[in-house]
Design a protein around this nucleic acid. Structure first.
Length: 879
RNA sequence: GCGAGAGUGGCGGAACUGGCAGACGCGCGAGACUUAGGAUCUCGUGGGAGACCGUGGGGGUUCAAGUCCCCCCUCUCGCACCA
């Protein structure tokens, strides 16, 4: 039996924790609580790769630490299990998403459990479970009752060839990602959530939470509050119509020389004059087909057409031509603008292209060359002339309100949340659409509304969601009115379940309520929330929104759900690529191949350096790479083809995925945990390197030998020297406790580990290991390598479990030594060092410094012009 | 284009509010022990023969700059004409 048998030890302690329910958390008013939460995963078919556990390990270390500090810790795990991939798989294979989901969850659970984390598995939740769906629908009812859920006609991506509605990410260049079929935008009746009603509070309350600044900024920008004015323009010849525009620069109103409507604007059809109609319609068509991405690619290149209609300037009564152009977006502001080419870059470019007049109204720039968007003094502006920009804004705002031509207002970039998906695998809406055209909620007692069984998951080809085909589910009779009614064929998006799971974790088995008041009062808010920065905006904004609604209903007691937030950096993999000419992936052809040295890139497209021909990148799975003696990577079968090493996100398609199962079998989960934390700061990404694991593994083996001894009969208790040991040993122990403690508090887990390494290296160098040091060390090690720490804790004669022991303390006096080293500089360059008693005064230190021999050589023949002394840190002679 | 973050040995990374650059680990080199080892232990390891030079490049502030200020370069990640 090898001295440190990680497999036996890890199995033994995972069993112990499970059987003794060591991590079971219950409400205990006598203890302070601490709620640590990981963003729960979507259980994909691919299983975990080594990148996933990074954040989970960090929270595990922190929650174990908090438990040892006397907190009652809640650290749960569950599954965000609705989602597209399972449905996609059902379409391809006919396997019910429920089965796929169950299978995937089983794999994930096993992998998670092999990490040895301190999750309270009794609290596991699954968003697809009817007992969970019920409460998701219950929250929807609350939103609906508050008037925050409404129906609207919203365009979706409809692909006639596939006969299905596609998500934005499934549409590439106006074509379906699979198959490359054309996609059109068609309006469909869908659920919206009025998140905009909470825009101000979502913005304001960011001040209440302890989140990374970049994340807060992203949320602020996403909400995008801007102050300005709404201005009304009459339309010549249409006395009952007016165009409303929003502008942040009402002071430039006198510079407006034309109007632009978004092509989708409702007035377009109405006001367009007869002989412009065909041109306008053609343009509207063209814009509808052009994908988001194509539009983005052409930013700067302005297009548009004139409608033939004119608006009336609210002050001067001048006629302003009305154009349509896709640089005005329908969903922001009012979908219409007044164009002020002299003072807006986009309007300027447009006016130049279509020869529209440009009138300067704010001085300070040269509008013959470019738009001037800065502030200045108004000119050509009637009653605003001579006013600086802020006053001009104010004055115009007042004028508009006095004359009923507009109002001062605030607009948000944030839009209402499109809350329905044309999918099967999601929560059904708990509503009935009655014969008489009204919509009503399914009563609370009838929840959950469950999905009907479906045999065939393939799209019907009709313009409708899959649930619309299940007539016996869809068609019901309203019990109250006896009217015929239809259920809603849409389902909720994946966000729904993840918007409130943190509340369910507080009280996961409650069948009467979504959560009890007591549980919520005790556990909330989440004290530490850890998960990927990719959720910086959507998930975090959506769940904050729901939380605030629940707060207004008195169902939760904190305005914000997540107090502190951390984003772990991504672990990257090494992939190996080359290029070939087989653009269409035809298996019949033998393509020409190119190493990266023969390739150049143009707009991210790889081209043959010599001929300029387009190429396609290919990846060789890292296990198949053939390594030359020169250390160069070669293609496994194509002779002499050099592969380029690229560091990028781990994914199946790049063949660079490392499975944690393999690492755990070989080195143990304690080693993997330690390595992932030792790689660098939590927030930073870093490339994975299996070759570095033996380093931390060796450290664990040294720790094992240090405490369990080198003997073969490894089962008996170890003998240690009683008491605190030598002064040096007591010092090192105290310093290690102090250092590791502050590092964990700051989430500096990599430096905490390096301090543990130094301890093991030095503690028994000159004297046998004292019991006090050994125990302190094991307590410090316990959050990082919990299995080994448990094992050694028992081996030195203690009772399990170390997870419930108190965190070690230290004597402050031992941390500061008797002597300190003071570096001596001459002109800022290190020339010598002196050792002085720790309590030396400034004068004593300076005297000792001046007597130093090495220094004397550097000071020979000169007298110091100045001496800089930094309290017990440094002396610098300036000569 | 806009915004955010980052550039330190061969590699991952340390360095608290400006104060000994390179902790700890990988890799590499030398030695010890061993029947053997992806074993263990010890020592060394930024460059240069050298006074010296070194934290992406250039300037500056300071007794002192990886850290502060200005300009530039590169990479990564978000966002998408937001009126």
């Amino acid at each position: 039996m090898p001295p440190y048998d990680h497999r036996a030890i890890e199995e033994k302690w995972q069993r112990y924790w499970r059987e003794h329910q060591v991590f079971r958390s219950e409400i205990d008013p006598s203890k302070p609580k601490f709620y640590v939460l990981d963003m729960f995963p979507y259980p994909s078919g691919a299983g975990l790769h080594v990148g996933h556990p990074k954040g989970y390990i960090a929270t595990d270390i922190y929650s174990r630490y908090k438990r040892m500090r006397g907190f009652n810790v809640l650290h749960p795990m569950g599954w965000d299990a609705f989602g597209l991939p399972a449905e996609q798989y059902a379409i391809e294979t006919g396997t019910h998403p429920r089965e796929t989901t169950k299978k995937n969850i089983d794999v994930f659970r096993r992998q998670f459990q092999s990490l040895g984390n301190d999750y309270d598995w009794a609290r596991e939740i699954d968003t697809t479970d009817p007992g969970y769906v019920r409460w998701t629908q219950w929250i929807f009812r609350k939103l609906y009752e508050r008037g925050l859920a409404y129906l609207a006609e919203v365009p979706v991506n409809w692909c006639p060839a596939l006969g299905t509605v596609l998500a934005n990410e499934e549409v590439v260049d106006g074509k379906s990602e699979r198959g490359g079929h054309p996609v059109v935008r068609l309006p469909m009746r869908q659920w919206m959530l009025r998140i905009t009603a909470y825009a101000d509070r979502l913005l304001e309350d960011l001040n209440l939470v302890d989140w990374p600044d970049p994340i807060k900024k992203m949320q602020r920008d996403w909400i995008g509050r801007s102050e300005g004015a709404r201005i009304f323009f009459e339309v010549a010849g249409w006395p009952n119509e007016r165009i409303e525009v929003f502008t942040t620069r009402p002071d430039t109103l006198f510079g407006a020389t034309y109007m632009v409507l978004a092509p989708e604007h409702p007035l377009v059809e109405k006001v367009t004059v007869a002989d412009r109609r065909s041109a306008v319609e053609a343009y509207v068509q063209e814009v509808a087909i052009r994908s988001e991405r194509a539009r983005i690619a052409e930013v700067g290149e302005k297009t548009g057409v004139f409608t033939g209609a004119y608006a009336v300037h609210p002050v001067t009564q001048a006629s302003l031509p009305i154009w349509i152009a896709d640089y005005v977006v329908a969903t922001y502001g009012t979908g219409a603008i007044m164009a002020v080419p002299a003072h807006d870059i986009r309007d300027f470019a447009f006016a130049r292209k279509f020869h529209l007049p440009i009138v300067e109204v704010v001085s300070g720039g040269d509008i013959s060359k470019a738009a001037y968007i800065g502030e200045g003094v108004n000119v050509n502006s009637d009653f605003l002339d001579g006013l600086p920009t802020p006053q001009a804004k104010q004055r115009m705002g007042e004028w508009l309100e006095q004359h009923g031509k507009g109002e001062q207002t605030v607009t948000y970039k944030l839009r209402d949340w499109l809350f329905s998906r044309q999918r099967y695998w999601g929560e059904p809406f708990p509503v009935l659409h009655l014969e008489d055209g009204t919509t009503k909620l399914v009563p609370e007692s009838d929840l959950p509304v469950l999905l009907p069984e479906l045999e065939d998951f393939r799209p019907s080809g009709e313009f409708e969601p899959p649930l619309a085909r299940v007539r016996n589910w869809l068609e019901v009779t309203d019990p109250d009115t006896k009217q015929k009614a239809l259920r809603d064929a849409n389902t909720m998006p994946q966000w729904a379940g993840s918007c409130w799971y943190y509340l369910r974790f507080c009280d996961p088995h409650n069948a009467q309520e979504a959560w009890s008041r007591d549980a919520e009062r005790y556990w909330m808010p989440v004290d530490l929330y850890v998960g990927g920065a990719e959720h910086a905006v959507l998930h975090l904004l959506y769940s904050r929104f729901w939380h605030k609604v629940l707060f207004d209903l008195g169902l939760v007691h904190t305005p914000e759900p997540f107090q502190k937030l951390l984003n772990p950096g991504m672990i990257l993999g090494h992939s190996y690529r080359y290029f070939d000419t087989n653009l269409s992936d035809d298996p019949e052809v033998t393509p020409k191949v190119f190493p990266s040295s023969a390739v150049r890139f143009e707009n991210n497209t790889p081209l043959d350096k010599v001929k300029g021909e387009e190429l396609k990148a290919r990846w060789v799975p890292s296990q198949e790479v053939r390594w030359g003696e020169d250390g160069i990577a070669y293609h496994p079968t194509i002779d002499g083809l050099v592969l380029e090493e690229v560091t990028e996100k781990m994914s199946k398609s790049r063949g660079n995925v490392v499975n944690p199962d393999d690492i755990i079998v070989e080195y143990g989960t304690d080693s993997m945990r330690l390595y992932e934390m030792f790689m660098g700061p939590l927030e930073k990404g870093a490339p994975w390197s299996t070759e570095s694991i033996p380093g931390v593994s060796r450290f664990l083996q040294r720790a094992y030998r240090l405490i369990a001894g080198d003997r073969e009969d490894t089962d008996g208790p170890t003998s240690l020297v009683d008491g605190p040991g030598t002064l040096e040993q007591a010092r090192l122990t105290a310093r290690t406790i102090q250092g590791v403690t502050t590092d964990i508090e700051d989430m500096g887990l990599n430096t905490a580990i390096s301090k543990l390494m130094v301890f093991v290296r030095d503690i028994a160098r000159d004297a046998p290991l004292p019991r006090a040091s050994a125990e302190a060390f094991l307590l410090l090690l316990a959050p990082f390598a919990p299995h080994l720490a448990e094992e050694l804790w028992v081996r030195i004669g203690n009772q399990p479990s170390i997870a419930n022991q108190s965190w070690p303390t230290y004597d402050q006096a031992l941390v500061v030594g008797e002597e300190i080293t003071i570096p001596i500089q001459v002109n800022g360059k290190l020339r010598s060092k002196i050792l002085v008693p720790a309590d030396s005064s400034k004068d004593e230190i300076l005297q000792l410094a001046q007597k130093d021999e090495k220094l004397a050589e550097w000071l020979r023949g000169t007298t110091p012009r100045k001496v800089i002394y930094v309290e017990k840190k440094l002396v610098n002679f300036v000569v």
